[in-house]
Design a protein around this nucleic acid. Sequence first.
DNA 1: TGAACTCGTGGGAACGTTACCACGGTGATT
DNA 2: AATCACCGTGGTAACGTTCCCACGAGTTCA
Lengths: 348, 348
Amino acid sequence: MQRRRPTIIDVARKAGVSKSTAGRALSGASNVTDEARARVLDAARAVGYERNDLAVGMRSGRTGLLGLVIPDITNPFWAEVARGAQDRAVENEASLLVFSSDWDHSREASHLRALRQARVDGAIINPVADNFDDLDRFGLPFVLIGSSAERFPATSSVGSDIAQAVRLGMDHLVSKGHHAPALILGPKSRIARARFLRTFHEHCVERDIDPAALPMEDGEYTVEGGRTAMMRLLQRDRVGHLAVFAANDLMALGAMVAVREAGLRCPEDVSILGFDGIPAGAFSWPGLTTVAKPGREIGVRAVDCLFDEIAGRPEHGRVFMPCRLIERGSLADLSLNQPRRAASSGRG
Amino acid sequence: MQRRRPTIIDVARKAGVSKSTAGRALSGASNVTDEARARVLDAARAVGYERNDLAVGMRSGRTGLLGLVIPDITNPFWAEVARGAQDRAVENEASLLVFSSDWDHSREASHLRALRQARVDGAIINPVADNFDDLDRFGLPFVLIGSSAERFPATSSVGSDIAQAVRLGMDHLVSKGHHAPALILGPKSRIARARFLRTFHEHCVERDIDPAALPMEDGEYTVEGGRTAMMRLLQRDRVGHLAVFAANDLMALGAMVAVREAGLRCPEDVSILGFDGIPAGAFSWPGLTTVAKPGREIGVRAVDCLFDEIAGRPEHGRVFMPCRLIERGSLADLSLNQPRRAASSGRG
DNA sequence: TGAACTCGTGGGAACGTTACCACGGTGATT
DNA sequence: AATCACCGTGGTAACGTTCCCACGAGTTCA
């Protein structure tokens, strides 16, 4: 049976010093003689001492625990973010409590409560909705991730640079000859949607495109949501090649399925541009051309910001991470006026 | 600035009782008058009391923290497992500390140490290798997940029923007329590989197939690993249709890429059967036929087992969760002797 | 009627650590 | 030579909760 775990007192006794000295030696404080420190460290190793983070947290107020609240760890993009945060946390000897909110407001609230009760040092949160209240009441340091940040200008946040991302996407579409792309967006309730849409409109105006004239459909941020949105898009009247900018890779992949189901081909008949850069896009057929968010880096930076926030250092404000375009095969090159060749080039 | 958070003593004072009574009322103990309990609960609400899990853990030895150590949260299968574990943990008012080991032995060891220092109640672990030592030294309740379990017969574990899974896959292959499938396996260092291979051999013998005669290639459990393995497979001499059973969906998808790159078609020229059931397999083209492990359920059951283990209840022993076959389009039906029709039926 | 038992309550100790203060010794400054 | 500052050290008090024990009041039983 598992016997009592050695405490700092056991170490102190073994080293022949007081527990204060032992504590100082173990925590790396400076005011200890080298000789005493060595004795303590030896003793600690000898008895198999391991610090009790609970007691430390109790006394010092720092637990080395960080919270991460995201919509769904099962979503590849959020998994990337989680991984980045995880790695950076570990580098700083912290541990990550991970929660999925499933876009559910009450779940989010209860996760935040759990984090408070666990006395985490701080949290990284992708808030479900634009509710100031729960976050305001959170009472602990936190940084926001994702595109919801702009609703909370006062708190520091890390997200992708949507403006740059949309520009990247639009430039690519236009360069391939797609001047009037349709849009597949997330649900109206999501903050990210408005952000994306507004930026998109700005870029349309810059390019003398009338955004109001462009087809647009909604759906959940899932494969199925993208599939049904694309089905509706295909039922509309249209002439010639259809290009679609999807607000999320899962939706883009769903759209691709719908195209196939309708007996059409991507990219020959329909071009699809995604947004996120999830790995799955690399082995769909055709490969999904997409604007990739730096998920992992966002996670890393969020932890950095959080540590600053915890330390009370001047806040970073809002950090926008640059996206990059990954060109695969889902866009036809109409600019060549040779759609057939353009299509086959997508296979390379 | 953030003022002191109310403690149980504040609640007791407000309710006009001792902290003992307040504690009993809040923790739901029976020996408190209804009247006192009501007063305490009201007071708690009034002052905004929230239990300090640290102090509870300190005193009672139970922290409500569970550890999860998996290879990589970014792998869709493990994300599913994590999600299942997460949900079940939350249902039981516990929180999950998630770590990725990246198949790295020293990372795993340091994660296990972090879990001990955090005084988690127990942990769910997919061990990197078959090292008894680290697990033996862990000193806390734990359950294993994944196929590594058989090396540790003494500890309880939850995994998929590989024997049943392989039978499912083999039956399907044979029913479609593939009597001599090639194999794409994980690295030799992985425990899962041996498990899969041995079971596969058993099923070959049952079906009068000589396993030694079947082509076999290794690779990392990644898309790239599957791609290169398939390239090597394609370089071998062969006659007629090639069928491949991949030990992992990511590898299967990589194999599909390799087939395309070689100018061949799946399933017309090459049939591919995956293993895992990750969502990405649903929107590859063709859709990946695969033996799906119940990732989420494995996570759920692992938490259940862990709670039993923590409570010292008779151990569950080894739990094997049944897999199911998801039929999509990556297998040609040779049994009809009409490969062309068989192939196109895969598109339905 | 007194002993034994039950029930709700309160006081104190304990969990393991760090923060704080006081102490003695040493070296530098007045 | 007396004062001061500094350094390493040890003792003690927290941190917030639960556990254990004791106490008084009420009830039951002999």
